[in-house]
Amino acid sequence: MNNNFPPWICIFEQRLAMLEKKQCELKDHLDKQINEKLNHQLAGQIDSLPQNITYKIQELHVNELKGTLNIGLTAPATEQMRDIIEKLKTDQAHISENISTQQSTDN
């Protein structure tokens, strides 16, 4: 350090160096914790991978190629559809009321 500076600046520089060192230590500690958590989660996901995958293949005869053929696609709103079906199952009184109201307005 330079002795030409007032003592409070020297103390300030020492504290700043100490804080920078602690910051690096904390960063290293946090990086280590994050890596451990990620490795633990990854190990859990690897253990949950399916052991056997069975493909069901059916023979398809095509005489004419027209239109669109979608193979192996599922609806993106599967969970939403399940929620709607459960709601419909649990709210039977409300459904029958709506149906009767709708039928009377149709006549």
Rank of each mutant, 00 (worst) to 15 (best):
M1Y: 05
M1N: 10
N3S: 10
N3Y: 04
N4V: 01
F5D: 14
P6A: 13
P7I: 09
W8E: 15
C10P: 00
C10K: 13
C10A: 10
E13L: 09
Q14L: 08
R15K: 12
R15H: 08
A17Y: 05
M18V: 02
L19A: 14
K21Q: 14
K22W: 05
C24G: 06
C24F: 01
E25R: 04
E25F: 00
D28F: 01
D28K: 11
L30M: 08
L30K: 07
K32P: 00
K32H: 07
K32E: 14
Q33A: 06
I34M: 10
N35E: 15
E36D: 10
E36M: 07
E36A: 11
E36F: 01
K37Y: 08
K37W: 04
N39S: 12
H40S: 15
H40I: 03
Q41C: 05
L42Q: 15
L42M: 15
Q45G: 07
I46L: 15
I46M: 10
D47A: 15
S48M: 12
L49T: 00
P50W: 06
P50Q: 09
Q51N: 08
Y55V: 11
Y55G: 02
K56Y: 10
I57K: 10
I57P: 00
I57D: 08
I57M: 07
Q58N: 12
E59S: 11
L60W: 04
H61W: 02
H61S: 11
V62T: 06
V62K: 05
V62C: 09
V62S: 04
V62D: 01
V62I: 15
V62E: 06
V62F: 03
E64S: 06
K66I: 02
K66L: 09
K66H: 08
G67W: 05
T68K: 13
L69Q: 01
N70R: 06
N70G: 00
N70S: 10
I71P: 00
I71F: 02
I71A: 08
I71G: 00
G72H: 03
L73Q: 07
L73S: 05
L73C: 04
L73P: 00
T74N: 12
A75I: 02
A75D: 10
P76T: 02
P76W: 00
P76H: 02
P76V: 01
P76E: 11
A77W: 02
E79Y: 01
M81C: 02
D83K: 08
D83Q: 14
I84E: 14
E86F: 03
L88W: 05
K89C: 10
T90Y: 14
T90G: 14
D91N: 15
Q92T: 07
Q92A: 14
A93V: 08
A93T: 04
A93K: 04
A93W: 01
I95A: 15
E97Y: 03
E97L: 07
I99Y: 12
I99H: 09
Q102N: 12
Q102S: 14
Q103R: 05
S104T: 12
D106E: 12
N107A: 13
